[in-house]
Amino acid sequence: MKILVIGGSGLIGTKVVALLRQKGHQVIAASPSTGINTITGEGLAEATKDTDVVIDLANSPSFEDNAVMEFFQTAGRNLLGAEISAGVKHHVALSIVGVDIMQNIGYMRAKMAQEDIIRQSGVPYTIIRSTQFLEFIGGIANQATKGNEVHLSDVKFQPIASDDVAAFVAKYALAAPTNGIVEIAGPERFDMYDVATRYLKYINDPRTVVPNDQPAYYGGAVPRTALVPAGHAELGTISFGKWLSTQLQQA
């Protein structure tokens, strides 16, 4: 199959590309650096030509509310427009668990807009909603840091390793479109502050985590269980502990 991975140079994208190539598929890793840009449309028509599956793993360069909304809307419209014209048979996108109940957060609104564009496009699709990537814990800690303290709540948190995410994405990309949402998550559930505490300690970060009981995500108040799957979800195999150990090896 010819598979186009938008954001093929990103964290998940690189892994998905590698997995699919291993399986012998013809994979195009698309990103602005390889001349394929969903915002400007550059290279898009050529890249989607004769393509069976498009996997959208791109992310906005800016997370500012308006910019991120603009990014996902423009990219979504351009990409799906090109897919329709090229006759693409399956569109796979990576979204976020709880995206629909965290609409007070700009990024979530943008991801929801992305999902809506997919659903309305008419292209057969699979939307994979994932929990936060373990690789993202550092980022979460950073945005919650004040001075030497990291203020995080006891919001439920079930992070997943990017290798697991990539494996799920590859699996769904090769399966028939579900025309619906599937959810994926890590194998264990925590309180968010707890994961951060253990992570910082593990990497010898001097900051201290100050827990609170106001569940929030990226500054926006959210229901305590917003970030974890409510119903059935496929769970990754890589535990937090196992992941931590590989992190240090890589570092």
């Binding site: 449309g41 028509a45 050529e46 419209r77 351009n78 427009g81 090109a82 329709i84 014209s85």
Partner: peptide, 16 residues
């Protein structure tokens, strides 16, 4: 209408 709604040029295949 697809062309009019697309911000970018669209490559189209007559047969398709």
């Amino acid at each position: 209408n697809r062309i009019l709604n697309s911000a970018i040029p669209v490559l189209l295949n007559t047969e398709r």
